[in-house]
Amino acid sequence: MQGVAAVWRMGIFSLCVFCLRIYIAAEFLQRGVAKAADWHAAVVQFTLDFSLPLMSPVWSAGTFVVADFVFSMLLVLGAFMSSACAGLLMLNLAALIFQSSIWDLSRPDPLLFRLYSSACLLFLIAWGPGALSFDALRRAER
């Protein structure tokens, strides 16, 4: 009977991890879509508020939009999870370091999003993508 309980717990855990992956990916994808939809505003934001050293604002905005899309899709699929999570963590780190308005505590939502999503991404790196992922499927084939 212990085997059934262990499989049940593993199934629930995999479902929870899958839901967490979808939630985090949806949040980053929403930010990427918003930047892509209003490209001029994104370039202005990367010019005034989020200026990365050694990169022009157009390249910075483009890099963030592409990274939001690519890493979010990898997260949804559960493919190359460590790389996808590390990429999104790098986006969060860049925002925490270079975005000046993120530390404005009169509107804490951007800061809280970066901190919460970083904690979730670190959890996903530590525990893996779960059984509902391409990574698990690839491991099972070996």
Score class of each variant (00 low, 15 high):
A84W: 03
P108Y: 04
G32A: 11
R31W: 07
A6W: 02
A140R: 14
S14Y: 03
L75W: 12
V70M: 10
A5G: 00
V70K: 06
P129T: 03
W39N: 12
S60R: 02
V44G: 00
D68K: 01
G3R: 05
L88F: 02
V33K: 01
L93D: 04
D104W: 10
F80P: 00
A34M: 11
S60I: 07
F113C: 01
F64H: 02
F71S: 14
R107V: 10
F28T: 05
L75H: 08
Q45K: 05
A86H: 07
L54R: 12
L115I: 15
Q99C: 13
A126D: 00
L20R: 03
S117W: 02
L91E: 12
A41L: 12
V33C: 08
P57C: 03
L122T: 06
L75F: 11
L115Y: 08
P110H: 07
P110V: 08
R31H: 11
A26Y: 07
C19Y: 10
A126C: 11
F113R: 10
L15W: 09
R138Y: 10
F113V: 09
M1Y: 02
A42P: 05
A67M: 13
V65K: 03
A95V: 05
D38F: 08
L74I: 02
R142Y: 03
F98P: 07
I22T: 02
F98L: 09
Q99D: 14
F80I: 06
T47C: 05
I125E: 03
G130P: 03
A42T: 13
T63G: 15
F134P: 00
